[in-house]
Amino acid sequence: MTQQRTWFITGVNSGFGRSMTEQLLARGDRVAGTARDLSAMTELKTRYADLLWLAELDVTDSAAIRRVVDQAFQQLGRIEVLVSNAGYGLFGAAEEISDEQLVHQMDTNLIGSMQLVRAVLPHFRRQQAGRILQLSSVGGQAAFPGASAYHASKWGIEGFIDAVGQEVATFNIGCTLVEPGGARTAFRYGSSQLAPRIEAYDTSPASMARRMIEEGTSIPIGDPAKMTALMIASVDQHPAPQRLALGSDAYATMHRQLSARLAALEAQKELALSTDFAADS
């Protein structure tokens, strides 16, 4: 029988956050859900009442993150799982991105996720138990032109979670990075943002990402319901899986890029070893 849990999930109004919330409530788990705009949550709140605790939250506001997290633990008691899901994609060449867009991308995807984890850790540590699911992306392991800022945010959060997982394992806290490929959510054509266009980049590979968003004709292969079901199931795995690749496109892309990186490293082995002091030094 599945153990009933309480989950804290950001970005519950759409995408993976919405799908996960619906699946968890349907099986009888409690959800503490946050979003900047909760208007889309009225029907679920009416249907599930006390199983669904809601709070408005903009994850770029660090003080609000701490306040909402503390309120959730105070009012709900024990929370077993954090799902750091809120985020969006910013597309365009690095030179095209405005300063404001760059800062907001990092504040949302990277700093916001870091602050959320930091806010939850004292509670998990006192419980001597907890599980963190951090939504990353195939873009946290592979990089494509036209998405440099997005990749920076996702590669950054992957390094953070990898280190945090080692820091908190002694408190029975597990961390998993979720790396989906393309999924049929509103991420690509709904929440994503484009940088202002610089005409010179029309002939650059960076323009492919812009065209994909503007044309809106590329249909992702991933099923969000299947992906979120596997995210939920991963919490029953012990120890926590360090990474969860979801989607045939994610697997193929990461396998190709990781293999190429390893081959490049091996080609530099003798060069790397040559920089050490001699053994008799």
Rank of each mutant, 00 (worst) to 15 (best):
T2S: 13
Q4W: 06
S14P: 00
S14D: 10
S19H: 02
L24M: 07
L25E: 04
L38Q: 12
L38W: 10
S39M: 01
A40P: 04
T42I: 05
E43H: 12
Y48E: 05
A49E: 15
D61E: 11
A63D: 15
A72F: 05
F73R: 10
Q75H: 11
Q75S: 13
Y88I: 04
A93V: 06
E96C: 07
D99M: 03
H104K: 12
Q105D: 12
Q105A: 14
T108C: 05
N109I: 10
S113D: 01
M114G: 05
M114S: 10
A119V: 06
H123V: 08
R126V: 13
Q127F: 10
A129M: 00
R131K: 12
S136W: 04
G140I: 05
Q141Y: 11
G146I: 13
Y150L: 06
S153G: 15
W155K: 06
G156K: 02
P180W: 02
F187S: 04
Y189V: 10
S191F: 05
L194K: 04
R197L: 13
S204Y: 09
R211T: 14
E214P: 06
I219N: 03
K226R: 11
A229N: 07
S234E: 01
P239M: 11
D249S: 10
T253G: 02
H255W: 09
Q257P: 03
L262C: 00
A263H: 15
E270G: 07
L273T: 13
S274D: 08
T275N: 00
D276W: 03
F277P: 09
D280Q: 12
D280A: 11
